[in-house]
Design a protein around this nucleic acid. Structure first.
Length: 889
RNA sequence: GGGCGGGUAGCUCAGUUGGGAGAGCGGCGGCCUUACAAGCCGUAGGUCACAGGUUCGAGCCCUGUUCCGCCUACCA
């Protein structure tokens, strides 16, 4: 027994440090790529290298760790690859901030030095999140930790880029993209967060040449009018069938722009006339391309107006908005301003309002890739769990747009494309070229952009295993077994991994995708730093221990529902850990040696022994089934109920006399053997969920060697299966528990102090019941605190008792002289009313011919038996009620 | 605008092919019973959002209504 076991309060802090170090030292996290067993592999969703651990990570890591530890117990070869991603924009922002503090910026120090600064930052702070993952108990194979900017992964990125380019699946072009003027980079569609804002709808007259009043257009962004190159109306719109001119004069610029006809325009909205700004609106851009319109950029990459904005050049885009409105108003061209709610895109990194902007970018053609990724799910090669996410996945994939992969930042994988300054040839190559293959010129310039971070993350399941080399790891562990992730990156990441995995490995990157909940605060709000409602996992761990946090998250991780977390709940599960701890402490007072050789089939076991083994068997089956189906909360609930309410509340209490040697030596031996086996298997079962406390207990359990991590799940490997469930024992124990419970119940309701031992008479017409109860009388006497228990065939009713009914037995508690008649009458009447209610429902069914005819015979039989039982109970109670009444008078 | 999820005990939520409404926490009453007061024993509390329908039978299936949450969108 370790010193710790003297403490009746489990203190996780030192225990957790000790065992984590032990696991690492023993190499228990390391995957065996030479093993012959079944393979189980997971790649971690790489957290941002700039990140700090939050509850989302905690849940994500906990669930993966449960799966990995569970599969290790099943004897499988488990590989869990950890790592981080380089988080291009986020990391660059962090380093830029620190440069700003030193009064410099990246442009001053230049690209090369800046990159060096980022690496310096990464080596200094970049492993913070990794340490935090360890504090959660994550059993990742740290020797195989990867970083998306590692050399190997960078090689994979290059190879993928070049191949896709050669296949015509990557192209470069001038398109409208989402631009963050603060980060000065392009953003992918999904990196834009839409937020509903109160804005205005400005109605502006565009006069015809010559000054006649013209069509009225409406816009939420008047400043973009400076870049208008057309006004569009629907071709079927009669209001614009006969116009005095096919041009209008764009106010404030004097430019003449055409009126075009396009079916896109909604006749029913506003005036039916739409201003077209191809360079600053995605829809206008497409209309513009259809009609060959000029694409005029009036907002530059800093969010300021360009020279083409005329007198507004250099003005901030929002200042310009007010200025334009004022000017139009002064000209009498602003006819109306309405309040208008609309969704505005914000940068997901810095929350600046995104500017749709025309620029030269690199794109991945997604159509064919997405098709394969969709069919992988449709055919069942990939299962998405819960299934409902498949639908969202299909909808998104079927509407997927080409993926803008270039970013105008410095930190990331530089695009392997060069342009020859002499002949203009574009060179895309895995190895840096020295000269142009066409003209031989040495003046070739590499594209200055880097790739979207998700481009490298998309390769994660195979790049981390050594691809493009044919490694043993890939051979053994690809495809991975399951991906555990939140739905917020289903499209950012999961879908793209599918596309890349299928295209480059010819196989799915994972068989299952388990999509877990989001962790919210207790009011259901998203946890965020700005709201200040964040529960920090590290301080929770400090206060309650990792196991408590893990078990809480697991217990609430029901499929398809978010987790509302509060400290109160964590405290509750901390208590559970402590309960387990004390159950172990108690057990160790008696367990001095292993009892491995004990034959559990022995007929001589006492009822509680048979019962707890049967319940343990049930729990094992439930845990296995729940985990195999990713129903983590069900596994946790089964374990919680078993440990606390079966093992502790009933089993340990029931076998105390045997353990304390108050019964025969044989009884003690049996109890010790069963206790040992049940405790050991329970600890193994619990280990994936609460690894630390179970490891601590494991090392004090006689007869165990090494780590519980290396143990075998009950019924697998060297851990022989338990005997099958024992329905007889469970039924008998239910009767015993029933008798004890009604006595306690009477004690409570009749206000008899626990210290006062009672005399109880149990009577029944049923010999079998009588036999059973007398056989286990010791348990009843002990747990109901009796001084006297008489079990007999129903005969004369004793007087002065409070009574209850358990099945076909009547339990009478003798309250000589102290019985409160009124209280007892009340109690019986209440109980009888309850039973009467239940019977009423059943009788209604049984008198319904349709029910008797159409319901399955089994169901009807059950109803009938139930009704009979209740009728018996009611009768027995009413006899007692009469008796009490007659005594009262 | 479209889509999705949810409304079950005071609170947070389970409830897997439709067959006697559950847990945890909280409340209340009683206990320092030698593993555990972070505990033990007992107990109260629900028209399963509302209205219809299918069925012998609905928390569960169908329709409509309503409230909340999320995602998404090309009404400028």
């Amino acid at each position: 027994m370790t010193d710790n076991l003297r403490n009746k309060e489990y203190s996780p802090r030192e225990v957790e440090k000790k065992w984590y170090a032990f696991w690492e030292k023993e190499g228990l996290f390391c995957a065996d790529d030479n093993g012959s067993g079944k393979k189980f592999s997971i790649v971690i969703p790489p957290p941002n290298v700039t990140g700090v651990l939050h509850m989302g990570h905690s849940l994500n890591i906990t669930l993966q760790d449960i799966l990995c530890r569970y599969h290790r117990l099943l004897g499988e070869d488990v590989l869990w690859i950890p790592g981080t991603d380089h988080a291009g924009i986020a990391t660059q922002n962090v380093v830029e901030r620190s440069l700003a503090e030193k009064n410099t910026d990246r442009h001053q120090i230049g690209r090369e030095r800046f990159i060096a600064e980022v690496w310096k930052w990464r080596s200094q702070y970049g492993s913070a999140i990794i340490h935090q993952l360890k504090s959660l108990g994550a059993s990742c194979d740290w020797e195989r930790e990867r970083f998306t900017m590692d050399e190997g992964l960078s090689r994979a990125v290059r190879k993928v880029f070049v191949q896709l380019y050669d296949e015509g699946l990557i192209y470069r072009g001038n398109y409208i993209i989402n631009w963050c003027p603060r980060c000065r980079t392009a953003l992918a569609e999904i990196e834009v967060e839409h937020e509903e804002l109160d804005g205005h709808l400005y109605h502006i007259v565009y006069p015809y040449p010559g000054g006649k009043t013209g069509p009225v257009v409406a816009t939420t962004r008047p400043e973009t009018m400076l870049g208008d190159t057309a006004v569009a109306v629907n071709p079927g719109d009669q209001r614009y069938a006969n116009l005095p001119s096919d041009h209008v004069v764009l106010p404030l610029t004097g430019r003449e722009i055409p009126i075009i006809r396009d079916k896109y325009v909604d006749m029913s909205f506003g005036t039916g006339a739409l201003k077209i700004t191809p360079a600053h609106d995605p829809n206008d851009f497409e209309i513009g391309r259809r009609h060959g319109l000029q694409e005029l950029k009036v907002i530059d990459d800093d969010g300021k107006m360009t020279a083409d904005a005329g007198e507004y050049a250099g003005m901030d885009r929002f200042k310009c908005r007010s200025a334009v409105v004022e000017a139009l108003s002064a000209l009498g061209l602003l006819v109306k301003v309405e309040d208008h709610k609309h969704a505005v895109g914000h940068c997901y990194r810095c929350h600046t309002i995104v500017e749709p902007n025309l620029s030269l970018q690199w794109f991945v053609k997604t159509e064919s890739l997405a098709k394969d990724a969709v069919s992988a799910v449709k055919t069942g090669n990939i299962r998405i769990i819960p299934e409902k996410w498949s639908k969202d996945y299909y909808i998104w994939m079927e509407n997927i747009r080409d993926w803008c992969i270039s970013r105008q930042i410095w930190w990331g994988h530089r695009i392997p494309a060069w342009t020859c300054e002499s002949c203009g040839r574009v060179i895309v190559a895995v190895d840096d070229p020295d000269l142009c293959p066409d003209c031989g010129s040495e003046s070739i310039v590499q594209d200055s952009d880097v790739l979207d971070t998700w481009f490298s993350s998309a390769l994660w399941p195979f790049s981390t295993m050594g691809w493009p080399d044919n490694t043993r790891l890939l051979e053994q562990f690809y495809p991975t077994s399951v991906l555990v992730t939140g739905f917020d990156i289903l499209f950012f990441w999961v879908a793209r991994m599918m596309m890349m995995g299928l295209h480059f490995k010819g196989d799915v990157p994972f068989h299952d995708v388990y999509v877990h909940a989001l962790v919210r605060d207790e009011d259901g709000k998203k946890m965020s730093k700005s709201t200040g409602n964040v529960i920090d996992p590290l301080s929770i761990i400090e206060k309650y221990g990792t196991d408590a946090l893990r078990f809480t998250l697991t217990a609430f991780a029901a499929q398809g529902r978010d987790i509302k977390l509060s400290e109160k709940r964590i405290e509750g599960y901390r208590n559970f850990i402590n309960k387990l701890w004390n159950a172990a402490r108690f057990s160790f007072m008696h367990l001095k040696e292993a009892h491995e050789t004990f034959d559990l089939d022995k007929k001589s076991l006492c009822l509680p022994d048979k019962w707890i083994l049967s319940r343990l068997k049930k729990t094992i089956d439930e845990v296995k089934e729940a985990l195999d189906g990713y129903r983590f909360n069900e596994a946790a609930a089964a374990l919680y109920g078993f440990v606390w309410h079966e093992f502790c509340d009933w089993y340990l209490e029931a076998v105390k006399p045997a353990l304390y040697g108050k019964l025969s030596e044989k009884d003690r031996d049996s109890a010790l053997s069963v206790l040992w086996r049940v405790l050991r298997d329970t600890i193994i079962l619990l280990h994936p969920f609460i690894p630390f406390v179970t490891e601590e207990i494991w090392h004090s359990l006689p007869g165990t060697k090494g780590s519980v991590m290396a143990a075998a799940f009950p019924g697998t490997g060297r851990n022989a299966a338990l005997p099958p469930r024992d329905p007889d024992a469970e039924r008998d124990m239910d009767i015993v528990i029933g008798v004890i419970t009604v006595v306690r119940n009477i004690r409570g309701e009749m206000n008899v102090p626990p210290s006062l031992a009672l005399s109880v008479i149990v009577q029944s017409d049923n010999d079998e019941t009588i036999n059973k109860i007398s056989r286990h009388r010791d348990i009843i006497v002990n747990l109901a605190r009796l001084e006297n228990l008489t079990v007999s065939i129903a005969g004369e009713k004793p007087g002065g008792t409070a009574t209850s009914v358990v099945g076909d037995a009547v339990v009478s508690v003798l309250l000589k002289g102290v019985i409160d008649f009124e209280l007892e009458i009340n109690r019986l009447e209440k109980k009888m009313a309850k039973i009467g209610n239940q019977m009423h429902g059943l009788s209604k069914k049984l008198s319904n011919m349709d029910y008797l005819k159409k319901a399955p015979a089994q169901v009807v039989e059950k109803t009938r038996a139930n009704h009979e039982e209740l009728a018996g109970e009611l009768e027995r109670l009413s006899l007692n009620l009469e008796k009490i009444r007659s005594m009262e008078t």
